[in-house]
């Protein structure tokens, strides 16, 4: 569904991606892990058309994405839930969800407003509130719900656990698992590598703009280097789950 081939890109003059290749097939949940500054967000923003690529290819369902504008990429069904939620804080919760439908273009919806509210009841209870007044976890749910309103074929999630309490992270990740089981294709970018590797089927490890490791999630999780650098030992596990 998504095929990235030898992608290079720079961000404010510094080369952030050095020939990254990556694929996501229909129905998969793929995790992309790596330290802060490894180029994870740049990669997502390249896919979404926010950051231009220097060379290489990004194919979505066989169509080249480089050179397309962000709005047109969103309308193809490739939706990003950006880092830090980026909800439209001055608009109401309801309006945020309605804006999600803009990405539909000519495609038919896969999620109705009622279904999204069923998935995240809090969004129904607070639909007339200013979105900026929601808690961090509620904002993350709104950001995901808003993405679903646009009938995503592939959902890109950038650090959905960032700044959330462990209990809320559990909730968000269990929703992602359910969405994936229901057939939604997901590319999950996470610094919280342990959690990401638990729910993903495959994983890529990004380091200084290069893919240094990839494979089935459990194999990656068992890799010695990955354990040392990204997962820590068991004693550290608890602190890994703390909000950033």
């Amino acid at each position: 569904m998504l095929k990235i081939d030898k992608l290079t890109a720079s961000y404010s003059g510094i080369t952030a991606l050095h020939g990254v290749s990556l694929t996501v097939s229909k129905g998969e949940m793929v995790a992309l892990i790596g330290a802060n500054g490894a180029g994870k967000s740049t990669l997502l923003n390249c896919i979404s058309g926010i950051v231009p690529s220097d060379s290489g290819q990004i194919l979505f369902n066989g169509q080249e994405l480089s050179g397309r504008r962000p709005a047109s990429i969103a309308r193809m069904g490739l939706l990003q839930v950006p880092e830090g939620r980026q909800i439209l804080s001055d608009l109401s919760v309801y309006e945020n969800l309605q804006l999600g439908q803009l990405a539909l273009g000519n495609r038919s919806p896969t999620w109705s407003h009622e279904q999204v509210v069923e998935l995240f009841p809090v969004l129904g209870a607070r639909q007339n509130q200013r979105a900026g007044s929601l808690s961090g976890g509620e904002q993350q749910m709104l950001a995901i719900g808003r993405g679903l309103m646009g009938a995503p074929e592939l959902l890109l999630l950038d650090e959905p656990s960032l700044g959330l309490a462990p209990k809320i992270v559990d909730q968000v990740f269990s929703v992602l698992t359910r969405l994936n089981e229901a057939g939604l294709t997901i590319l999950l970018v996470e610094q919280n590598a342990r959690r990401a590797l638990q729910i993903a089927s495959r994983a890529y490890v990004l380091e200084r703009g290069m893919v240094v490791h990839s494979g089935p999630a459990d194999v990656v999780a068992a890799d010695k280097k990955v354990v040392t650098y990204y997962l820590g030992n068991l004693a550290d596990a608890a602190s890994q789950d703390q909000p950033a």
């Binding site: 969103a74 939706l79 950006p82 439209l88 804006l99 803009l102 990405a103 273009g105």
Partner: peptide, 13 residues
């Protein structure tokens, strides 16, 4: 007005 970048990601031109 609220967040131009987020609006772009939602399909606003």
């Amino acid at each position: 007005s609220s967040n131009e970048r987020a609006a772009m990601l939602l399909g606003v031109e």
